[in-house]
Nucleic acid binder design. Structure first.
Length: 114
DNA sequence: TTAGTGACCAACT
DNA sequence: AAGTTGGCCACTA
């Protein structure tokens, strides 16, 4: 039985699986949980992740590796600092070496099923 | 229920 | 090549 916030739970589950020092994109997560056109809503779900512990929301960026959601963090550069503390280089809100550290759940994780 | 919003994405000019 | 527009769909009021 699926609750209305089941979508959020799926998002959180995937985000928690992101390995240390890697990043992924909203679209990739949306696709993995079976809602390929709901990338926007994935970001919306991240907004609620502040209530949840152990959600590395800083590891989720847009498809260009740009930190579009950094304004939703407390500090001006908190998101960047969190990423840098994991060994990810960030310059001007842009993840450097993005293609190398990019982690796609569709490739690295087993197919999602309930 | 209808309408408005957004941490995106792809297509179009 | 760079900027704008529209669609997408879950959530809130």
């Amino acid at each position: 039985m699926k609750s209305s916030s089941d979508f959020y739970k799926r998002v959180f589950i995937v985000v928690k699986q992101i390995p240390h020092g890697r990043v992924t994109s909203y679209g990739a997560i949306a696709r993995y949980i079976g809602a390929p056109r709901s990338s926007r809503t994935v970001g919306y779900a991240m907004n609620a992740s502040h209530n949840m512990p152990d959600i590395p929301s800083q590891r989720v960026v847009n498809r260009n590796g740009l930190l579009t959601g950094k304004h939703h963090f407390q500090g001006t550069h908190l998101m960047q600092q969190l990423l840098e503390s994991e060994g990810i280089e960030v310059i001007e809100d842009q993840v450097q070496n993005f293609q190398e550290i990019y982690w796609d759940p569709n490739l690295e994780l087993p197919v999602f099923k309930d």
